[in-house]
Design a protein around this nucleic acid. Structure first.
Lengths: 97, 97
DNA sequence: TGACAATATGATCATATTACCATAAAGTAA
DNA sequence: TTACTTTATGGTAATATGATCATATTGTCA
């Protein structure tokens, strides 16, 4: 708080909760490459439809992703491209070269 | 996983859990300025000693921070400076200029 | 219209997280 | 040694999270 306001820390911690899960982090990584439909994310995450749907819902409610309905499909995209920088920093920490 | 191995995604999501909490994120932000003792963090976070201690313990077990005992005090420090980049990215997303 | 495909939601159960209390452990100093 | 300070740990209760089942919603197409 020296540097960041209390309310911003709270908001950021909520945002972190939105991606602090194996499936949701996987979704985020994929969406960084571009928007994807639920069906595509389903293949990518190898989980149950209903389970993925809940994770996507959580990410949407916490403002990390946005959706756009396209006919029968729903396309998900990252709400703020700066999440890419978060992922890049995580890669430095967790992905050995 | 296109880009990140499954095991790395898992590790990163665990690391994210270590900071996806208001108190723990506050601790991380403070430690970015340099090592601090528990007592100092206690003042900074304005929480109960026993509560903070558990949060610190979690961060340590998940490898985000390290400790060094100095007499009666315990000094905490960030294990990997790259967490600074994570915070900077979060600032872009959550801290309006 | 009916059948089907894509996605979301409600209910439920198991598990995890968190805050708080009491207490323990470890170091210091008289 | 005793008293005190600093930090950690065990127990517990409230709440949150996650997986799974069944079902609903919405849109497409024949």
């Amino acid at each position: 708080m020296n540097q960041i306001a209390k309310e911003d820390v709270l908001a950021a911690s909520e945002g972190l909760k939105a991606i602090a899960h194996e499936i949701r982090l996987t979704v985020l990584c994929h969406l960084l490459q571009g928007p994807m439909t639920v069906s595509e994310l389903l293949k990518a995450t190898e989980t149950e439809q209903t389970n993925l749907s809940k994770h996507l819902s959580k990410m949407r409610m916490l403002g990390v992703v946005e959706t756009e309905k396209q006919g029968n499909f729903v396309q998900y995209r990252i709400a703020n491209p700066d999440w890419g920088e978060v992922i890049n920093a995580l890669k430095k920490i967790y992905c050995p070269d």
